[in-house]
Simulated assay, not measured.
Amino acid sequence: MKKSNYSKSVVISVAIHALLIVLLLWGADFTFDNKQPVGNTIQATMVDPAMLNQQAQQIRQQRQAAKEAEQARQDRLEQQTAALETQRKAEAERIRQLKADKLAAEKQTREAEKQTREAEKQQQLQQQQALEAKAKAEAKAKVEAQAKADAKAKADAKAKADAKAKAEAKAKAEAKAKAEAEAKAKAEAQAKQDAALNDMFSGLEAENAQRGGARGKHIADEVARYGAIYKQMIQQNLLVDQSFKGQECKLTLRLSANGLVLNVSQLAGNDTLCRAAKSAVLQVSEFPMPDNPDVVKQLRVINLTVSP
């Protein structure tokens, strides 16, 4: 823009000089007198120096004025250019600031959205953890409750079983004691009866003993045979223990006429084995009897030796 202004100033200056030359030439008096004889006569008109000086002064003033006007115009142009540049810079700064504000706002918005997402994610994580903890606690409580219920049920069942076992054991013991008492009472009564019968038939037995013969041997054989049967029945019900090995027990059995056990007593032998043998006798409860009354009489009181 400054180069263009300079060109314009040069053109104006050249134009002013050309105008000055024209004015100088215009002020000169070029007059030809037709009446003068032909020859080499030259007439010159004198130029007024004051007027020329005045015109030069005017030209200088005009040039100065034009120069000042051009300078003023250039100053105005520079001022306008500076103002426009300032305005442009201000506008650019405003636009830059708007962009910066927009970017800052967008960044702030993104940051806020990020924080919101993080907060939501953290909240969801906390909720999930809370649900998992609740589920674990509920599962644990359920397992513990089930364990307590199972333990209570087991304890109740055990208590019932123990009570039932105790009742059964008590009933069994009472029944056993009653049976033993009844057997003892019967045995005592039978012993008294047997004693009376023995006294009554002692003479007859002595007579039969004297007779001897085949009948006595038959009776003895039958007694031995039934004794072996009784011993086998007792051993079948005997609870054998390792400690019984090599031991023996001698028992006396008192039976009714139909073979019912009236009493069993220990004559000799291992006490533990004898207790087991007596229990086995009571379990048999009733032994077989032959049809021969003489043999039955011999079997009602019989001694047996039990050896596992």
Rank of each mutant, 00 (worst) to 15 (best):
K231N: 14
G212S: 08
Y230R: 11
A179L: 11
A189H: 05
G203Y: 05
E207C: 01
K178L: 13
Q190T: 13
N237W: 11
Q236F: 10
Q242H: 07
I234E: 03
A206D: 00
V240D: 01
I219G: 03
R215S: 08
K186Y: 08
L197T: 03
Q232K: 14
Q190V: 10
G227K: 03
N237K: 11
M233H: 10
Q190I: 12
G216V: 15
D199N: 12
Q232D: 14
A206N: 00
I219C: 04
L204K: 00
A191R: 08
Q242A: 11
D221N: 10
G213V: 10
K184S: 08
L197R: 04
M200T: 01
A206E: 04
A179C: 05
R211V: 11
A228E: 07
M200S: 06
A185I: 09
M233F: 11
K184Q: 10
V240C: 02
S202D: 03
L197S: 03
L238A: 02
A191W: 06
Q193T: 11
E180I: 05
I234P: 03
Q242R: 13
Q236D: 14
S202F: 00
E188P: 04
A179T: 04
Q190F: 15
L239N: 03
K217G: 10
A220Q: 09
A181R: 05
N208Y: 06
A195K: 10
L238C: 05
V240A: 02
R211H: 03
I229P: 03
A181D: 05
G203S: 06
N198R: 06
K231D: 08
Q193L: 06
K192S: 05
A206R: 01
E180C: 05
A177F: 07
G213F: 08
L238F: 09
Y226N: 07
Q190C: 07
E222S: 12
Q190N: 15
I219P: 00
K186M: 11
D221Q: 15
A196L: 13
Q193I: 09
A185V: 14
A183W: 09
Q190R: 14
A181K: 04
K231F: 02
Q235K: 10
E180A: 07
A195D: 04
E207M: 06
N208K: 01
D241R: 13
Q210N: 01
A177N: 02
K217L: 15
E188Q: 13
L204P: 00
A191I: 12
A179K: 08
A185R: 06
G212W: 08
Q210F: 14
D221R: 15
F201S: 01
E188Y: 06
